[in-house]
Design a protein around this nucleic acid. Sequence first.
DNA 1: CTGTTAGCGCGTTCAT
DNA 2: ATGAACGCGCTAACAG
Lengths: 346, 346
Amino acid sequence: MPETVTIKDIARLAGVSIGTVDRVLHDRGRVAPETAETVRRLILETGFRPNLYASNLAQARTSTLGILTPLPEQDSGFWQLPHNGMRRAAEELLPFSIDLRFHCFDRFSEDSFREAVAELAAEKPDGILLAPIMPGPAQEIGRLLPAGIPLCCFDSDLPELEKLVFIGQDPYMSGRLAGKLMRLLTTDRGSTVIIQAVQADYHIRGRVEGFRSFYPRKNLPRLYEEKHFDTPRTRTAFMDELFSDDPDIRGIFVINSSVHQAAEYLNERGLQHIGLIGYDLIGPNMRHLETGTIDFLISQRPELQGYRGVFRLFEALNGRPGGEARETMPVDILTAENLRDYIPFR
Amino acid sequence: MPETVTIKDIARLAGVSIGTVDRVLHDRGRVAPETAETVRRLILETGFRPNLYASNLAQARTSTLGILTPLPEQDSGFWQLPHNGMRRAAEELLPFSIDLRFHCFDRFSEDSFREAVAELAAEKPDGILLAPIMPGPAQEIGRLLPAGIPLCCFDSDLPELEKLVFIGQDPYMSGRLAGKLMRLLTTDRGSTVIIQAVQADYHIRGRVEGFRSFYPRKNLPRLYEEKHFDTPRTRTAFMDELFSDDPDIRGIFVINSSVHQAAEYLNERGLQHIGLIGYDLIGPNMRHLETGTIDFLISQRPELQGYRGVFRLFEALNGRPGGEARETMPVDILTAENLRDYIPFR
DNA sequence: CTGTTAGCGCGTTCAT
DNA sequence: ATGAACGCGCTAACAG
């Protein structure tokens, strides 16, 4: 029976009116210091928590959230997933009317990124949700973004940025787990290679380290850059070269969502028996996971990340203190068997 | 900008007062048929959805939910987890004041179960949340439970019961995935055994079938009942017998949360190299997963199940139509590496 | 500095 | 059968 204590109770106990209580609640000043002190004490003692629904009912406030991510179609459509989660959060919080303003940039163009930031700033959002996957120096971003409003990073972190919360996976652990699975798959026979994205950021490097941490020093999987996954032809050439370099490859770890490209290649060449692990539950990857060309997919709940980002910003804007400074997503392991049931939980 | 249409808009458009609109909204009668028709049409056309927050603010209704599960300490404390999720949901929905009434039974006593049901019925709850793990004939339950109120089954299903929703895992798929992992672990050498609970219900049998489906016909893992996991001494005797029956055991699949008992035994005998897979993220299992005696744990989001159960009942009681008739939890694969990050997502 | 008041969307009397 | 009016907990404008 959680006794709900209201603003009226506080007023009565403090011997003031609800108007006064409201003023100290929102630091709107024009309140005698001692009065304010009493009210604050009472709030703590009673464990008063404002009724968000009544509060929002009253002011019908609409929060504008500025969102900065790569273009939804980049990384094989991956960025659609967090976008969906954000929309779901806004939908669920409907009576509160949250206005999501997406500003997407080409993750390979600095100009595009700057432009997106400028657009966002011009809108004067109440909060910012940012996937700091971008070209150029990370330091610059702190200056570009509008200051003094709550900021949430997701997917990757930018440690130097002051923020409300970071939401994402522990890249090292995620790589490490992939390493464990790969060793099970290959039973340590043959060699294993790593294929990473061109723009290897902090996040990707963590995954590489984690993966290698599961291998003995003297036998570290070699690292390649997937410069040529953009067309089937260049992809085939690139992969062929890999195999002519080292014909004994038994395992391939692709450190991002483009693992389906490697799967296509293995299918072409009839090499489905080779262990293949990659990232993210996107359409093309699903298909290859189901047919078994991809053995495991690591997932990071991109939809939930978007959802939580909007949710946390919403809470912050509505005067909910607290909340973790870091929400770590678990490392989900997907296989042909559990794939379907994961879809609603992306 | 999702134009929020209110009850007032409907009233204006229909040329009636909000009182009338409210009456048709809640089928409270005393409304002229044509008027009601007009209002209903307008509601559909405008896509009007009542503001839950305003609605609940107005009536301060408190819903009583009757909860029926095994005793929290049974199954190695497993049942605490869904309980936690239920409390979290009630907490989050705080201004709505939801009253959770737990009625727990001894899962090995029919009398205890009947008593719990009687208690629950006496309280006249507004909704029921039920984990149908119980002794005796399932058919009886339909008659015992109070009728006419929304019912939600979680963890296991009881197909013959009419219900709002079932929330749980696909047992077959979960067993099948365990089979896949076990074959990877043992690389198909030696033999593998299955240890199941004494009261093997529908749910457990599904897991067994799934597990075996991954093995060739002629080499099906044998099935044992864990009659003797209650004390260390009987446990050791039981397991010793298993190994004297078949000294070539390389893999053990325990089909419930008591896998930590098997782990204790393997530690005693220095048999940690044997593949061990079991269920559920509870304290004793966590420790053995971290030290590597347990190789994989399958989890089924028990906390989320409880959370969703309360949430769905709440929605149903507040006139939200729709929602899936089945919420399938994904089969989570836990290892020493991702264990920690899963804890908040149980 | 402080108290009063209207109103947010809705449910619920109580008259009519 | 229908409408007017009050109040849920809170915000914000206004009067003092």
